[in-house]
Simulated assay, not measured.
Amino acid sequence: MLPDDAATVTSADPAPAPAVDPVGYARLYGEPLMRMPTDLYIPPDALEIFLEAFEGPLDLLLYLIRKQNFNILDIPMAQVTLQYLKYVDQIRVHNLELAAEYLLMAAMLIEIKSRMLLPSRKSDVEDDAGDPRAELVRRLLEYEQIKLAAYDLNTIPQLERDFIRPAIFIEQSLTASWPDVEPADLQAAWLDVLKRAKLTQHHKISRQELSVREHMSSILRQLQSARFVEFADLFDVAGGVPIVVVNFVALLELAKETLIEITQAEPFAPIYVRLAYSPA
């Protein structure tokens, strides 16, 4: 028979298991993963994203220079060309069409490197004393300026990308609200009415009875008070065209009846009218 102390030890509860940390490597359907899965499948094209990270040969070349803090005005062509060619080899394996543009830049880098390795002769110094890297440096600096400008433009907030234009429904009041009329609005309305009124015109045609005999008598009275009267003085221009026409017809009738004489001293001289001469 066991002592009481031994019975107490035997009937005691088992020791609790250590607490499991709920934070794992990841969560799958809300459940934490406590260990890395061994059956992951990585598609072979997954790494092609890295090949398209650069926008062109200049972008890759600028990245290699800035990443290693090289002086862009004094590029170590051997080291940069070697790193560039390693990247081009990766592109040729995965995407041959994309590698064509990069191969052109690689050929240019190799040419610059070769020209720097060749010993310079006196004739070469006289013909071309410039640095073979000068044209490449110029293109890199221009590309970097354009890239920074594009980055600054991209930071400007854009509609539908960084913000949206809200549409708020405002319930209008049932009471009609009339806008206030300013003096300038009233003036503009009056000028518009006046403009339309000028476009509408009415022509009134009236009939006027004129007597040729009365004008003949009037001409004879004028000639009795003067020996000669100039032709233009016999017409009342202020009376209008109808009066002038009838007056001219009356003058012709008087000349036809030989009651007046129309004379002229010489060609282009003033024309005068007088009463016809009658012997005593």
Rank of each mutant, 00 (worst) to 15 (best):
R138I: 07
E111S: 05
P14C: 09
S11P: 04
A149W: 07
L159M: 15
Q68Y: 09
Y63N: 13
R139T: 10
L62C: 09
N95M: 02
L47G: 11
F70Q: 03
R66W: 04
L62H: 09
E48M: 04
L141D: 07
M116T: 05
A17W: 11
P32Y: 05
I72Y: 01
L51I: 10
V93G: 01
A149P: 00
G24H: 03
R115K: 11
P32S: 05
R35G: 04
K67P: 02
Q83N: 09
I75H: 06
D128G: 01
M34N: 03
L118M: 12
E55W: 10
L103F: 08
A150K: 13
M105H: 00
L64D: 02
P32M: 04
A12Q: 10
I75M: 01
L73D: 14
P157A: 09
P57G: 09
P37D: 03
I49Y: 09
A100K: 15
I65L: 08
K67L: 14
F50M: 08
E31I: 11
D131A: 03
Y87W: 14
L28T: 06
Q79L: 09
L73R: 15
M34P: 02
Y25L: 15
V93I: 10
L33G: 00
D89M: 09
R35L: 14
A26S: 13
A17Q: 14
L141Y: 05
L148Y: 01
A100H: 15
Y87S: 06
I110E: 11
M34C: 06
K147Y: 12
F50L: 08
I110F: 12
Y151A: 15
Q158A: 14
S123G: 08
